[in-house]
Amino acid sequence: MLSLIFRRILYALPIAIGVSVVCFSLVYLAPGDPLQTILPADASADTIALIKHEYGFDRPIPVQYALWLWRVLHGDFGVSISTRRPVLLEVAGSLHNTAILALFSVPLSFGLGYAMGAIAGCFPGKWIDRIVTGTAVMGVSLPNYWVGIVFVILFSVEWMVLPATGMGLHGSDQFDILSWSDARFLILPVVTLAMVPIGILSRSTRAAVSEIRGQDFVVTLRAKGLSEPAIIRHVLKNSLPPVMAVMGLQFGYLMGGSILVETVFTWPGSGFLLSKAIINRDIPVLQGCILALAMVFVATNLVVDLLQAAIDPRIRRA
């Protein structure tokens, strides 16, 4: 197991480096000069050259990358162009808020999605399977930003039972999950965010369960006279590894893909920070935010890989 952990980390390392290269090159995708946003319009050629030198933009690109990576590894992501605060502080605070959303969306979507998929997979072709499959297709086809807006229309505008946007009266610094006056701000974004994972997860769970139900060992179990609940227990245990891989991807999606939902609910998380950074053309924040979210995603995949190996000896031996 130890050597497996080592090997997987070794495998994730080049990917992490590749991700950092992509994040670094985002600056060069931007139209015009990377310094355009901070330079005054009437800057003389000397000023431009001076600032370019100051920022290190006059050096060869590989050197720039190395310097940038060195700074990032020491926790220096640069300074936000619009707020002048260190990017690290901005990103850390917003990641924390996104994590709060994910913390509640994950159990909701994984639990519900897995249960729906398992039930559907155990009764293929029955009415309950049709309902679950239909719901799942709807879940994956829903634009969740629109669902969020519809929720706001229904619960905040028409019925006035839940708050439309934001993170509570005291802002994100003093957000208190335990008090209802703050926690109710969570409900709509969490439910909206859970929609898509519920659909994807119930789909893949159904596929895994119904495939395993057709395997030889299930026939053997049945021939040996095992009761149906005991057979289902075996099937569910075996369906867990492939479903966990999907869950890992979905966790990454919840962390990194919440940008649209956070924008709808003005939730001060990493996605909202990202969309603000795009509007303000704040490249350091954009870069830092994406790097942080992608690293969370890489780390999640690594953890899921290892968890899969931990619960499934077949993967360990392979």
Partner: peptide, 25 residues
């Protein structure tokens, strides 16, 4: 395939937003 793995390491929404955001929309 290793290059593809790097792009696989981004959630799709994030990658789309990052690229088009950097390219200026």
């Amino acid at each position: 395939m290793r290059t593809m793995d790097v792009f696989y390491a981004f959630p799709s929404v994030l990658l789309a937003v990052a690229l088009s955001g950097a390219m200026g929309g």
